[in-house]
Write a protein that binds this DNA or RNA. Sequence first.
DNA 1: TTGATATCATTTGCATACGAATGAATTTGA
DNA 2: TCAAATTCATTCGTATGCAAATGATATCAA
Lengths: 153, 153
Amino acid sequence: MSGEDNLLKLVEAEEADENDYRLQEQVGFILRKAHQRHVSIFAAHIADLTPPQFAALAKLHDVGETSQNQLGSLIAMDAATVKGVIDRLKARGLVELSKHEVDKRRLLVNLTAKGRDAIARLIPIARDITEETLAPLSAKEVATFMRLLAKLT
Amino acid sequence: MSGEDNLLKLVEAEEADENDYRLQEQVGFILRKAHQRHVSIFAAHIADLTPPQFAALAKLHDVGETSQNQLGSLIAMDAATVKGVIDRLKARGLVELSKHEVDKRRLLVNLTAKGRDAIARLIPIARDITEETLAPLSAKEVATFMRLLAKLT
DNA sequence: TTGATATCATTTGCATACGAATGAATTTGA
DNA sequence: TCAAATTCATTCGTATGCAAATGATATCAA
């Protein structure tokens, strides 16, 4: 085999490599689609709340009063994002805000009675949403998938 | 055991059920976090393009000229979203638009020379991004995870 | 004590993401 | 054929999501 042949093969290999890139098989692309599907299932069951809004209420229900930023870190939202979510929940009377007595930087967030009612009503529905999202998998597959997905975060 | 006891147990069971809801273990919540992590890894490797923009270029590189909506369906974006993405790629000279000669409703999208150069340069980096995203998993786990993730879409 | 750091929150700007409404062009079907 | 339905694209409104800049407060350290 000549040197030219080797060079040609090398070039072809590189080009094949590039032509071979399959977007549909990349983890980021599928992750984005899986997330979209989940959001769509969520919306079909809970029309008046988004997943981030639900997450904020569920976490407040779980831990009680917290500061806005602390809540954000508990539900994986940066300060700018959590502010918008909390503002909208406040506008709807589901949470209420107050100032921290000691640390004047902190903005405390609490569920209102209406917020507590809402989250109590929605949690059983949220279970259905989880179930429907995972419906394409068998019970065993669900366990495997959740274990591996958790490793990716 | 009295009837009151049974009723009490039932009520407690329901409340325990609700108190037991663990947001951090729900597939939607973890999916959102996994997606966030991927986007962050992507941004660390490719600063001047978002994942959706990259997806549009990669798909155009793959299939060649298509209509805007067709491209959207290939990369899982609705019409409103894909318009914004393509507008920004056009503004940067990475794609060009033209009207379909026969079907005057259609807006055709093509890579420019600059767009082709960009995607050719970025595809190897995109492979690194996929690899880093999946780095917490072993090779075997990657195969399992990708198989199950694909079943969810 | 006080100056440097760090934390909490807000604001701005940009980029998805999608429902709903609209308009133009095409296709279908009675 | 022609009215109804469909498709393609655009626009508007709302909601994440994040980087960067800013201001107020709190903490740390020399």
